[in-house]
Computed example of a mutant assay.
Amino acid sequence: MVQLFKTIKICLLLLMHAAAPPLHILIEKTEVIIMQEATTSIASPESYNTMTLTGQGRVMAQPDLAVIRLGVQTDGVDLDTIQPQNAQITQNVLDALQEGGIENIRTVQYTIDKLYDYENGTQVDRGFKVINLMEIRAEDLSGVGNIVDTAVSAGANLIEMISFEASEPSVYYQQALNMAMMDAIDKARTLSRSLRLRTNLTPIKIVESGSVITPPLPYQRELASTPVLPGDISIEASLTAVFAY
């Protein structure tokens, strides 16, 4: 009975050994399978060429806001005299403008400076200069000349500038930016047709170059008469776009 049990045990061991391959063979097959899966899972990147083009857009807008900077300058040896004199004249200008219905006024500069001359290489004290500069913003462009005349009649003797602006320049800039994008796309389309390229007209990269707002020429008192006529404002946008083909 014992002999029979040993015989059966030996037979079972032989069968198990015959059914299972050596351990090192199983490991080698496993490594091959892993390497194959890793190799097939890595996709090679798609290669393509690119073209880099610029686009420009420009919108002309009519200004709807006037910005006027004017004020009072007084000079003299005695600061205690010219400072209150400047204040009184400035108040006269403010009163005259407000009586004319101008309310959007603010002070943008008030300075007291020493005045010097040079005679034979020697610095000579000439007293003081007091400047009180105010800014007026007006939506009625037709009344700009009247504002200037009113201020000058009341004692203003310093006109720094008159500029004309658009109250919402971002609206016009967005239009110019859209035109710049279409300009770049049109260039890409033209080049693709000429060179027979299959180009994706949706850019893979866009870089905005910035905006340029060119106002009308500033008003110069000595070069212009009282009627002040604003010109158009030029608002420009530019960008760089990269297309793949």
Rank of each mutant, 00 (worst) to 15 (best):
R69P: 00
I112Q: 11
E222T: 12
L177F: 14
D95N: 14
E37F: 13
T226A: 05
R106H: 10
L26W: 15
D78S: 15
P216R: 10
R193D: 06
R221H: 07
Q62G: 02
E160V: 11
I235A: 04
S47I: 14
A184I: 04
S153G: 00
D95G: 00
S238C: 02
I233R: 02
T7K: 13
I8Y: 13
L217M: 10
D95H: 13
L70I: 10
L70E: 03
P218Q: 07
I131H: 03
S209P: 00
E31V: 14
K114Y: 06
T81M: 07
T39K: 13
I34Y: 13
L177Q: 13
I233Q: 04
I102A: 01
V59F: 12
L239Y: 10
K187Q: 13
Q73K: 11
M182V: 03
G71C: 12
L65E: 07
A87I: 13
V67C: 01
N49P: 02
H17C: 04
P63G: 06
G143I: 02
I204H: 01
V77Q: 11
A176C: 01
R196L: 08
Q123V: 12
T7Y: 08
I105L: 06
N146C: 02
A154L: 05
L26V: 11
V72H: 05
T150W: 08
P227E: 06
A188G: 02
V77E: 09
P215N: 12
V130F: 07
E160Y: 10
R126I: 05
T54Q: 10
D80C: 08
N157L: 06
V212Q: 15
P230I: 09
L4T: 13
S234D: 08
A43H: 10
F128I: 06
I147C: 01
M35Q: 09
V59M: 06
H17Q: 00
Q62C: 04
F164Q: 03
P84V: 05
K9I: 14
S192Q: 00
I136D: 01
N157G: 02
M182R: 08
Q88M: 10
V108T: 09
Y116T: 08
D183E: 04
D232W: 07
I33G: 03
G71D: 07
Y110F: 13
R106S: 05
T40I: 12
R106A: 01
V152S: 04
S194A: 12
F164D: 01
E46V: 15
